[in-house]
Design a protein around this nucleic acid. Sequence first.
DNA 1: ACTTATTTTTAGGGCAACCTAAAAATTAAA
DNA 2: TTTAATTTTTAGGTTGCCCTAAAAATAAGT
Lengths: 227, 227
Amino acid sequence: MLKSIEDYLKNIYELQEHFERVTTNQLAEKMGITPASATGMIKKLAAMNLVKYRPYQGVELTDAGRLMALEVIRHHRLIELFLAKALGVPWDRVHDEAEKWEHVLSEDIEERIDRFLGSPRWDPHGAPIPDKAGNIEQRPRVRLCDITHPQAVRVLEVSDHDPELLRYLGKLNIYPQTDLTILSIEPFDKSMTVRHQQSTHTLSALVTSYIWVLPEEHMKKGQANAV
Amino acid sequence: MLKSIEDYLKNIYELQEHFERVTTNQLAEKMGITPASATGMIKKLAAMNLVKYRPYQGVELTDAGRLMALEVIRHHRLIELFLAKALGVPWDRVHDEAEKWEHVLSEDIEERIDRFLGSPRWDPHGAPIPDKAGNIEQRPRVRLCDITHPQAVRVLEVSDHDPELLRYLGKLNIYPQTDLTILSIEPFDKSMTVRHQQSTHTLSALVTSYIWVLPEEHMKKGQANAV
DNA sequence: ACTTATTTTTAGGGCAACCTAAAAATTAAA
DNA sequence: TTTAATTTTTAGGTTGCCCTAAAAATAAGT
Ligand SMILES: [Mn+2]
Ligand SMILES: [Mn+2]
Ligand SMILES: [Mn+2]
Ligand SMILES: [Mn+2]
């Protein structure tokens, strides 16, 4: 089915964002299938010219493959925001829904949702929404856990894959566009104490590894855009 | 996949609305598959106790099967109305979209859509939306083509399967809840001349066979409900 | 460099949902 | 009631996507 192909391409794209080379095993593990299955589909994608495949060396999206991946990602992220805005679905539940809806969205409805939302640039987790042509915004950002000294930061994006994390952050009122002040970083376990509005919280290194921020030293005007 | 099973049950339900017995060939033709394929799936549905199957004699939904069919139909009709109300999708396009979305709608989102729409009772074509328990409203109605003498009628429902028909009716401003006055019926071809607001139109027998109405003789108070 | 461990591919199947062609059952016509 | 037409089922096959187990290639350890 088309669904499988779309999911493979999307997952390859997402791995390519984090790793130089995307291996069969990485892909298989991310998708919850066996490496043997991944090899089979990769060969099919290669025959369709959607990926470049060098046996034993991994895969890479072709231009056509990247475009198709970005199309799916656009669907996914528009749907996430639409569910949140139009139906009040909490941000920890939109991802799993979008995972299914992304494959049944027609271009007509995609466009209507885009218009309804006013051509939004980011999804509820702060991830950029590619435009129709496949352009995707790249913002300078660092993982919160990689910041080494106290300073003000602005949350840009959080991982969307674990609902538990999102509920936790929601409880602390930490969302994209939230401004935080890092008060201290514990050398022992890298846990961070941050101030947010009136309250202070201590965040474990696990949590801070799932949060991307704009550090204050990069906060020139123009960077600090609203959704 | 679940999608196939859901579609089979829905189509059997729809055939049962019109025919006493649902045969393999009817089902196959409606679904655009071969009778051999239908037989295969019917046997599977029978093994799951979703249909009662007597070889060579046709199928019938069990209580469990009917409930599952109504669940899919509820999804379908809520989605149609949601697309129309929330995104302004014209009524000739909602059916095909809903055909795909009905299979990926979670119970949580179904409930949110239902709330968003105020627990609606009819879809954009006037078809009743089953409630969560599987109850579906049965209104007295007749096909417009079966009316034999001039009188006032109220449109209750129109067929949703042909976008061309829906665009045509839209052009004439004929929708569910529209009141029409039948001025005359041509004996030769059963075409009907009807008045609607300021204008009169002549509708062919083909068109009137796809429109269900409440005849004036049944228009007691309580029957003429709004959406 | 040689052995061991890991990664990746190949070989061989399974399952769901479809198909065509042939056989069997039912229904209609003579 | 026998024959012919139609409907329905069975038999056998295809495709997509997944699996396990075994073989091959690559990478790591001594
Ligand atoms: Mn997501
Ligand atoms: Mn998906
Ligand atoms: Mn419909
Ligand atoms: Mn469907």
